[in-house]
Design a protein around this nucleic acid. Sequence first.
DNA 1: CGGAACTTTGAGTTTCCTCAAAAAATGTGG
DNA 2: CCACATTTTTTGAGGAAACTCAAAGTTCCG
Lengths: 209, 209
Amino acid sequence: MTAESGAVFLTEGAHSAQLFTVLSGWAFRFKMLDDGRRQILNYVLPGDLVGLQGSVIGEMEHSVEALSPLVLCVFQRDRLDELFANHPGLAFDVTWLAAREERMLDDHLLSLGRRSALERAAYLLAFLHERAVSVGLGKGQGPVSIPLTQQHVADTLGLSIVHTNKTLRKLTNKGLIRWLGRSCEVLDATELARVAGWEGLGEPVRPLI
Amino acid sequence: MTAESGAVFLTEGAHSAQLFTVLSGWAFRFKMLDDGRRQILNYVLPGDLVGLQGSVIGEMEHSVEALSPLVLCVFQRDRLDELFANHPGLAFDVTWLAAREERMLDDHLLSLGRRSALERAAYLLAFLHERAVSVGLGKGQGPVSIPLTQQHVADTLGLSIVHTNKTLRKLTNKGLIRWLGRSCEVLDATELARVAGWEGLGEPVRPLI
DNA sequence: CGGAACTTTGAGTTTCCTCAAAAAATGTGG
DNA sequence: CCACATTTTTTGAGGAAACTCAAAGTTCCG
């Protein structure tokens, strides 16, 4: 299955939730408040599972939207029981992915709760850079390019679009990032992580799904 | 196994991570930045699993501290493989718990990113109240009592202790909570949820571990 | 080429923070 | 049970961070 950039392909409340594996492209998970405030929860990259909450618990409480053209592999939900029954190794891998997601959310919570705007922005871009590199998106010549707008950054960091712009400008002026059209190039991931006081994900092994 | 109130019984970086089930008591998971800023990630109640990240991925990236005297049941990590191999139903329950934790963290992120101080405080107390009731802590006469200090609330909401105090006072003045010693009584959980614009957890079924 | 979406900037306001200190509750040892 | 140290809660005042409003540039896309 494929999805266009900007397409919301899983929505909150969906009861017939499907489970997907991302083969290529970028997406993000988000929730909204009634008055339109949006919070981006995490980003989805190749190798990630999408819709596990819906499949395991029965209903989705967040939505997922594509940031770039996306290629997905669909899993029927009822086959999850079969997977646990007959493929314990794969079942463990699913749980490994869930634990890794939990760990990323822990990091995001630390950021939103206790880092300043500048630290938060540096953290986010260092994080996305590390994730992009870990799935092989850094192999092209030059810096890694992340497909998002400043509105996405604002809705991830819990900041207004105006303050986000001013904060990203500081990182740009330090030569750590560059903003191009609707994407961000990370020029110095090490320094970004240092500004944020972030240790990195530290993911030695990971299962292939 | 038991733990005293205030005891940190799992620490960040622990490599020989164990897996626990909580039988009774309250605890919380947290992370710290180098300069001492602390962020509480989530609360742990009876029926919760503690240390799954360490068991599945291999290293803990957060710590866990008791809020009240705690009774725990220890699981050896290597028995997790055996569980996945021979008890697919239980393995699924472990994954269910991981998905539920992920969902709670999603809610917390929405709160930290997009809710005001008052909304955040109302959300947190409605959330903790709902969790307490769901494990049967509401059966004693009178309101549910949650064992924490305002410093814990501040470190959960990402606010200073001073602003937290002023915010909780507003909720007290509205008659929604009462602060007693080092604990909080929830007097009107419905109104708290309404102030927060929060729908509740919505947990029809749950596995028994 | 023209409209829409996105980025940038400035000005004034609100929310939340820090500092400082007092008041209240809790715990401890005699 | 009381005196004392410690922790927790409360209050006030001034400052910093982030927000809203408004508008001008830019870039993107059909």
